[in-house]
Amino acid sequence: MAKTKFLVSRYDAARDTKPYLQEFRLEIPQGATLLDCINLIKWTQDGTLTYRMSCRSAICGSCSMKVNGHARLACKTQAADVVIDGAVTIEPMGNLPLIRDLAVDLEPFFDSIDRVKPYLVPDESRQWKREMLQSHDDYRKIEDASTCIMCASCWSDCNVLEVDPRFLGPAALAKAQRFVHDSRDSDTIGRIEFLSRVTGMWDCTHCAECATRCPTDAKPLFRIKELRTAAMTHKITNNNGARHVLAFRESVGGTVPGIGGGMLNENYIPVRSVGFFNLDGILSIIPVGVRMIIRGKNPPILPHIIDKFGEVRAMFRRFNDYRKEYRK
C-alpha cells in the first residue's frame, strides 16, 4: 500500500512565529484510526509531536482536532476514510489559543460551561429519602445533552465564536438545555431568563457546525432549538430573538389582524423584533429600509396573503393543541 501524506500543523512558541504544516509519510495500517496513525508518527518518526489523547474510545473527549478543516475525534475516525488525494491535513481546533502543535488552551471552553450554572438546582422544599423520581419520558428529554464529552469540537467550528468570543457557545448551551429540561431542576425560569440575554441562546446563527461536528448525541444546535422552544412556551420573549419568532407566528399565522396570511411580512419583522417602543432599535433599522425603498427592493406594503389561507389559519388557531400534542 502506498504511503499517505500527513500534513500536520506544527507550532512551538520558543521557535516559531506562526504555525506551519509539516509533512509526514506513513502507511496506514489496516483498520487504523487517525489517532493510531498520529501515535505511530510520534513514536517512530518525531517524538516532539504534541497533542492530547487518553481513552482512544471516543469517550474522554481529549483528541479532537481539525481534520481536513473540520473538528473531529482522531480516535473515532478511521484514517483511510479521511484521505483526500493521498493526503490528510491535521490542524489544531479553532477558536482556542494555541499552546503547541495540536494542543490548544481549553480554558475559554471550560469557562463557558461555568457560565451556565452547570449543576442541578433541586427543589429544596421537597425532601427525598430515596432517589427523586423521574419518568422515562422526562429522562429522554435530557439524555441527549447528557452524552456530551466536552471535546470542544463544536466550539472549534462554531461560526459565531469566530466573530464574538463572548458567545456562550454550543456546548454550554447544550449543557444548559440539560438543566432547563431536567424535571428535577427548580430554576427553569431563571435559567431561561439568563440564557435569553445577549451572548445566549438567541445569538446562535444556526450554522449547524456544532450539530455536524459533535461526535455524540449532544448535537448542540438541536438543544438550542429546544431551549428556544422552552423560552417561547414559558413566554420569556422580551428580547429581539424571541420577538423575531413572534413576528413569524403573527404574520404567517395571521394571528395579529392585518399583519399577514401564510407568508412572512418582511416589513413587520424588523419592527416587531426590535420592539415597537424601542426607539434606538427602530432608528437602527431605518437606514436599510431607506436603501431598499430607494432601489424599490422594499417588500410590498400590503402583506401578501396566500390562496387557501383559511387552512393555515385553522392550524394556528389550534396553536396550543399542537404544542401539547408535540410534548406527548
Binding site: K225, R228, T229, F248, R249, Y322
Partner: peptide, 9 residues
Amino acid sequence: AIQEDNPLL
C-alpha cells in the same frame, strides 16, 4: 423560527 416556536405546527 416557527419550528422553534411550535415544532409540530
